[in-house]
Design a binder for these strands. Structure first.
Lengths: 154, 154
DNA sequence: GCTTGACCTCAAGCGGGCTTGAAGTTGCAC
DNA sequence: GTGCAACTTCAAGCCCGCTTGAGGTCAAGC
């Protein structure tokens, strides 16, 4: 039941297999995203399950989660066993929703751009393009008022 | 032909109308994205056309361009007149393409996620989820090889 | 002409996600 | 038992897109 040495990977090995830099792995450990056994001499030895966690982390980042959010998501995953269908399903569903939201955002942006080309204003103003408003999901700043070349003086 | 003072905006005014912070405007000037006249005393006075540039900048950022890229895009726009249909059209088309690419990326990720739920592997590996590969457009790192719990030893 | 708020410059800081470097230790192969 | 790559920690640095602060000047209204 104990973990045999054949199952423990040194950091370089894990880095190579996961595609993360060793420095990133140490950083993740510092953040509590992953953990490791230690040899008598103090070197890290990773359980194979860590590869799963790293794959999860990479996927989560791809859909735009911060490491903080990844940390929360990981808290829902078992540390030592392969997640059950139910466990994984719950998370995957949330992620799909998130992706769908992102796609919807982009589509809205695209249609604003199309309008802008069609509307003839050409000033990249007055037509909402410069006022995405709910861009928040991607970049933060949030609501800005609509621009005009001279809204006040018109 | 010279610009009358009524057409020149102090930075606070431009900030209020464009929705950018004064500090951001100064920063953009430093990067060469916008420029300004100066009063005898050294204060900035912006031409109205600058509002257009700022709207453009905001829109470009929303699409996900870095300020470096915005700079290149701006180089294609006239400094002092409203862009012609052709000028704007060329840029808008490129942006739409970019958005389409982003959407395609997300769809790929979504389908990988769906497969992952369906395929029963549940290990968040072996099924491509953790290997977006061409994530580059969004996050940089670029190609990683496919993960498996133990690709070498299989 | 004075007050006051808006402006100026320059340097430093921040947040996120790491990377880099220095200085030293471990562990596997021969 | 030794050589050398791979590892260790800790502190600092980097990139991006700004913001903040200090210390000082300008300009517009009374």
């Amino acid at each position: 039941m104990t973990i045999t040495s054949r199952d423990l990977l040194p950091i370089g090995e894990l880095a190579a297999r996961s595609g993360h830099a060793p420095s990133a792995l140490r950083y993740y450990e510092e953040l509590g995203l992953i953990d490791a056994e230690r040899t008598a001499g103090g070197q890290r030895r990773y359980r194979r399950a860590t590869l799963r966690r790293l794959a999860f982390i990479r996927a989560a980042q791809t859909i735009g989660l911060s490491l903080d959010e990844v940390s929360e998501a990981l808290a829902q995953l078992p540390h030592d066993h392969v997640p059950t269908t139910a466990e994984w399903n719950r998370i995957a569903t949330a992620w799909q929703q998130r992706i769908d939201d992102q796609i919807a955002e982009l589509r809205k942006l695209r249609s604003r751009l199309t309008e802008c080309v069609g509307c003839g204003c050409l000033s990249v103003s007055r037509c909402g393009l410069s006022n995405p408003g709910d861009t928040a999901a991607r970049r933060g700043p949030g609501a800005r008022f609509l621009l005009g070349d001279d809204p006040a003086a018109r």
